[in-house]
Amino acid sequence: MTGDKIDISVTVNGRRYRRAVEPRRLLADFLRYDLRLTGTHVGCAHGVCGACTVSIDGRTARSCLTFAVQVDGAELETVEGLAPDAELSAIQAAFHRNHALQCGFCTPGFLMAARQLLAETLTPTEEEVRTALSGNLCRCTGYVNIVRAVMSAAEDLRANREASHV
């Protein structure tokens, strides 16, 4: 019946997990509470802020607007997957260098959105960066340094296309 749990199998950052979940379990809560992957943040839980952005089968999505049962069989990436070897990815390093975060709460979502953009193009205009990040809210920075960081990361990645961690 309604409360019955459903078995799912999902790959997150290259690692396979099997869990039983209630259908109403949001993907964001599944990642945070069931898998203890707390890098994905929940800001608003109704799709407005973008802090919970993850990648589902190679495309960004809001994990607060997806149920965990829906990702059975899918390949997910979360912010933890950006720097598996504890070395910052090019985008993370650019955020650090450009002071693109203050409190940091929104940062996981921005990193995932920026990563999607730079997987599609390494020569974005500033306007394209702003459009790509338009679904993510930051209350600290005023966005200027975030845009600057993504432009800088694009430049670094162009200079070193074989960089392993986009």
Binding site: G50, T60, A61, R62, L65, T66, A113, G135
Partner: peptide, 9 residues
């Protein structure tokens, strides 16, 4: 319509 992450779904 929305943003890239919402248009993906």
């Amino acid at each position: 319509n929305g943003h890239p992450a919402t248009r993906h779904r």
